[in-house]
Design a protein around this nucleic acid. Sequence first.
DNA 1: TAAATAGTGTCTGTGAGACACTATGGC
DNA 2: GCCATAGTGTCTCACAGACACTATTTA
Lengths: 245, 245
Amino acid sequence: MPPAPEAAAYDPYAFPPFAVTVDLAVFTVRDAQLNVLLVERGEDPYRGDWALPGGFVRPGESAGQAARRELAEETGLSHGTVHGLHLEQLRTYSEPDRDPRMRVVSVAYTALLPDLPEPRGGGDAAVARWTPRADTGPLAFDHDRILADAVDRIRAKFEYTGLATSFCPAAFTLGELQQVYETVWGVPLDRPNFRRKVLATPGFVEPAEGPPRRTGGRGKPAALYRAGTAAALHPPLLRPEGRQP
Amino acid sequence: MPPAPEAAAYDPYAFPPFAVTVDLAVFTVRDAQLNVLLVERGEDPYRGDWALPGGFVRPGESAGQAARRELAEETGLSHGTVHGLHLEQLRTYSEPDRDPRMRVVSVAYTALLPDLPEPRGGGDAAVARWTPRADTGPLAFDHDRILADAVDRIRAKFEYTGLATSFCPAAFTLGELQQVYETVWGVPLDRPNFRRKVLATPGFVEPAEGPPRRTGGRGKPAALYRAGTAAALHPPLLRPEGRQP
DNA sequence: TAAATAGTGTCTGTGAGACACTATGGC
DNA sequence: GCCATAGTGTCTCACAGACACTATTTA
């Protein structure tokens, strides 16, 4: 926090200026794969490479507001939809050489979206595509690192929060929820045990109205649930790896 | 990440500049109380108020490097000592009005120190004092918020990391370690159970050489341990509140 | 009928909480 | 002796994993 004791008062131009940006790691689960939203860069450096969407923080807005604005622009989602989404600050990346042009400090955010039927191309944004996590080649800047950090964070948060429901539509079956967990964690889960634990955790999911639905087009229709209100899961739903092998 | 599509190339002065600073939430456990390092402000705004230590990020350094440098300056610890300390990024605070003078984005860091005998006043820093967490009046800027976030983070991390050993000297007794947990969590723990769980968690603590030591100056001398190498605790050591009441 | 998914029940091992008990030091 | 802390043992309950079994739909 200013002041540095020796700072000659507060000439904002005393130091070369920093640019402050936000980077977005936006995920969805599609076809049993974790997908991340990427944009193709149209300018140097890294022209033609893929990168995480993002942009400058404007003078009057916070980084969180900037992230939400950029998310709306890149996804073409309505302002109202984006306003209700779960957007979480991941961490800040500030290596002096992370952008070859100038000093850029970037605050990274993570967002989790259900697999949207909408084409999502709305905005003026350049080419933006959902890409399976496994298929992301080297990204521009330090975005591979940001992406890896974001995935780690999501995996950990799935254990002790109900965040996984953010990947599901408003009403979902327990089979769909389990699919989300298995995709993000990359491990198969025992269905009866998963069911028992989810239903035993207060505030995780609640029964939803509406007729049962078939998860994969086959089999017995499943009851529908919607996201509960609990911020944290008690008890947590631990990864199988979480226990010592 | 730049570019915002419409950004006219990269004139660093196109926008009013952002200042980037670091704020430090540095903790120790002293006399069974969580203490935080505060400095008294010598200039407006908030002249005479207490604040978290911190300062500007310099052009050639990352925020993490700036945090480590500031920590060394404020605590008077040797460069070598500070270099080995656990310093963790907490989050970034970027509300446009958080500093009345100009736009300041601050990256907050958390550090955990053992209760040092050294007077710690070494640096040129102004008045810096350890203050019990309970006695921190309103702090300058949004530092109350940062402090609260830092305490929450520490409490949570104590469950699934061996971070608590950072509050202990190089060799410590299990009684001292339990004291740290009880202080940070604010709950009493069952001694036999605490002991059993700590020793059953691989990599949490390891036996240390040296004669046993009395924890409170009374009673049977206790065996010494040192911090283990495990980054995460398996199984975790959950807070009593973690379970549903 | 077979295949696929949903849902229920049960056994067993592990670990957490509670707490009684013993051991070793200073006074 | 008393007191304070360290350290051990044991009981019980809750929960996680494994897995057998039934139920309901489509093809």
